[in-house]
Design a protein around this nucleic acid. Structure first.
Lengths: 216, 216
DNA sequence: CAGTTACGCTACGACCCGTAGCGAAAGCCA
DNA sequence: TGGCTTTCGCTACGGGTCGTAGCGTAACTG
């Protein structure tokens, strides 16, 4: 069930046999240029031509690797989500605060701010894109939540649900609550996700988990 | 502190004295055409030219009233949020489920699905737009949460916080949790916000509120 | 009636899109 | 070394959208 950490391959896997290989340097330059462009121009004013110029690459090279702006931007910001980690802080409460602050740190960057909502908006009318987002971004976040949950169960802070279907639904619920609250606070309400907010949110969620556990 | 329900005025208030008045019929036709366009084309492929044609209006008329696509779309979907109501269902739990399902019903529509995330994305680099969204859409949702909270306090289900500053922070927190979770479930996870999910979410939140109240 | 504002229409330069076609570069294999 | 294959940079292009200007007409006020 663990998604293989597949190397990000823009479009079709290069090829089978010989020929000039794709420049990995160009790949990195393009993704970096995309992030810079997002910072300086924002999603809507970002153009593929500008990315190509800034990356020192021909525009055609971009179109050979990515289907469009959405796909490129997803890959560009997905790299930032690779750094997500969740050190064991000893308690469920501390781990939740850790997750919240990790998400908040990423959503605080201007690149991700403007890009995430935009590609999600596009994905509502583009199913393959939605799947790409899920694999590249959402699942990377979800891992943190699942890790924290498992740790809490090992500590005895959370009950182990025997029914795998119910357990999955619970995990999904918790994930949507955490990620949703942070995103909404940061991007819609546009107010800071600082330590005080994280503490208050954690208190709220923790109480809910305890109550839900007691009811079971 | 209650925002006056100002009539939606696209750009600058028409004028002071005589002259040909703006056609209210055209206004309605444009907003309706915008929603139809969102359904059929989605945000990115929606063009102001297409909206004008569909509304039976000259393109220039659009630009005389709205600064751009974002502003127009905000007004178009904001009308849908006018129908938001929260009937008293007798208990806090039932009211929370009501709020959740109301939000979910709106987010289920294809117009709002593709539009909301897009305009929020734009608003990250456009402060006036963010304010417009807040007034036209977010505050309309927030009213429901505040109403439910007040009802619960009158019923004695929730404590009345004396410090108005702390009370406001709590209300903000609850709002971000509810709206965020629903949005994330509906648009990012792209799974249905049905009654079962609403029930489970309510259980979680209710437990958290009870625990937070006990701690105070 | 004159004055004022909104409207429909046309036309326009500017920009971006996505693709085609070319010659050159960079690998692999005999 | 020479052939084969694939990618690269470059140029050029038709098609579409943008946002605005200019004009004559419509609607409403005093």
């Amino acid at each position: 069930m663990v998604a293989a950490m597949q190397s990000r391959t823009p479009t079709t896997p290069p090829a089978r046999t010989g020929g000039r290989p794709r420049s990995a340097t160009a790949d990195a330059a393009i993704l970096e240029a995309t992030r810079q462009g997002l910072v300086e121009l924002g999603w809507s004013r970002l153009t593929l031509g500008a990315v190509a110029t800034r990356a020192g690459v021909a525009k055609t090279t971009l179109y050979r690797r990515w289907a469009g702006k959405s796909e490129l931007v997803v890959d560009a910001v997905a790299e930032l989500f690779d750094e997500l980690e969740l050190p064991d802080r000893g308690s469920l409460a501390a781990d939740i605060e850790g997750v919240v602050l990790q998400f908040a740190a990423l959503l605080g960057r201007p690149e991700t701010k403007t890009a995430l909502m935009a590609v999600v908006a596009e994905s509502t009318t583009d199913e393959p894109l939605r799947e790409r987002i899920r694999q590249s971004i959402v699942d990377r976040q979800k891992r943190l939540v699942l890790a924290g949950r498992e740790r809490a169960q090992q500590r005895g802070e959370l009950p182990v649900e025997p029914d795998p279907s119910a357990a999955a639904r619970t995990a999904d619920l918790i994930f949507d609550v955490i990620a949703g609250a942070v995103v909404h606070r940061a991007l819609v309400s546009a107010e800071p996700v600082d330590e005080e907010w994280a503490r208050r949110f954690t208190l709220l969620l923790l109480g809910g988990l305890a109550a839900a556990a007691a009811q079971t």
